[in-house]
């Protein structure tokens, strides 16, 4: 199986900040808005270098979404930055009417997604955001897997015309994709390892956990195909069907509620095209709690060992 090397843990939010900084220098129509979380979103470099294009809106996320929608009228490409919770659930109607239904070219950039923001606890740990966003017609939903890919995705979405939800996180996680984001295309899954016994479709930093699980499975004589599904919508159905056609079963892995997430989207593709056993590595319809990221991933079953166990279970259902 193809090997991947962690070049050193990094937080994905810093990948966003680095991508935004480069965009600021490359495209004068890129503007950034933040709701009092500039440091947390790593937007300082953009703000320092382009103060005239950086809009501090204060703790008023609804207003931020509306302003972003309005800025597209005049050709700007607004990137909004706040935590995932405040980027989605708090402002759903503003996104729905002023951005999605109005077809505005806004990039909703959301940090601190999922359990792994850690100690702040469930009020801030949104596990429903992928579902909320993928339900909006024509919304693109992207959850990159590491620092390099988050940077690449940040730059790529500026060239996509239409609303985008970009999801990333707080903790430092393995960084293993190409430095220059080579091969990243919105809507095109990355097949990371080829396998014949089980398909593992993962998104976000669970892709690295999936690679670890595949290595453990390989040591036990099980061949796993790991797919990095960074784009949840539009979903790369062809990649899923091609792989599951070969392996006959699938595990999906995400830091999200099992309701409304990647797993559901994959299940929809399979049930309508090629029914196959599926296991869900996801949060089982609950809120999170305080703890370290590693503790939370262990307690809520979101790590490599959970993916390994789910892979064996789903193979037994073939």
């Amino acid at each position: 199986m193809k090997k991947y090397t962690n070049t050193g843990n990094k937080d994905t939010r810093s990948g966003f900040g680095a991508g935004l900084q480069e965009l600021g220098n490359e495209n004068e129509n890129v503007v950034a808005l933040c709701a009092d979380l500039t440091g947390s979103l790593k937007m300082n470099a953009f703000a320092d270098e382009h103060p005239e294009r950086f809009f501090q809106v204060g703790i008023a996320e609804a207003n931020m979404m509306g302003i972003a929608a309005g800025m597209t009228i005049g050709g700007k490409i607004p990137f909004t930055g706040t935590f995932a919770n405040f980027s989605t659930g708090r402002v759903y109607d503003q996104i729905r009417q002023s951005i999605a239904y109005s077809g505005k070219n806004v990039k909703i950039c959301a940090s601190h997604a999922g359990l792994t923001l850690g100690e702040d606890g469930a009020t801030h740990q949104i596990l429903e955001d992928i579902g909320l966003m993928k339900m909006l017609p024509h919304m693109v939903v992207i959850n990159p897997c590491d620092y390099n890919q988050t940077k690449a995705a940040t730059k790529a979405i500026s060239a996509h015309e239409g609303p985008v939800y970009l999801r990333f996180g707080r903790p430092s996680v393995a960084n293993f994709t190409p430095v220059d984001g080579e091969g990243f295309t919105i809507g095109k899954a990355d097949v990371l390892t080829e396998g014949s016994d089980v398909t593992i479709v993962a998104t976000g930093h669970l892709v690295w956990e999936a690679i670890q699980a595949a290595e453990a499975l390989e040591a036990q004589g099980i061949s796993a195909e790991v797919i990095n599904m960074h784009t949840i919508k539009p979903l790369d159905a062809a990649a899923i069907l091609s792989s599951v056609g070969k392996t006959g079963c699938v595990v999906t892995a995400e830091e999200h509620n099992r309701h409304g997430g990647l797993g559901e989207s994959v299940a929809q593709v399979l049930t309508t095209n090629h029914p196959a056993p599926q296991e869900f590595v996801a949060v089982n319809d609950s809120f999170g709690e305080s703890g370290t990221p590693a503790q939370l991933m262990e307690k809520y079953g979101l790590n490599a060992s959970a993916i390994e166990a789910a892979s064996k279970k789903v193979m037994g259902r073939k």
Binding site: G66, A68, A69, G70, T72, I73, Q97, K104
Partner: peptide
């Protein structure tokens, strides 16, 4: 230039257009 109906959103949108 914008959908409206769900109330309270137009002033924010107008501010964005004004800033642009």
């Amino acid at each position: 230039r914008i959908a409206s109906g769900s109330l309270g959103q137009g002033m924010s949108v107008a501010i964005g257009a004004a800033e642009a």
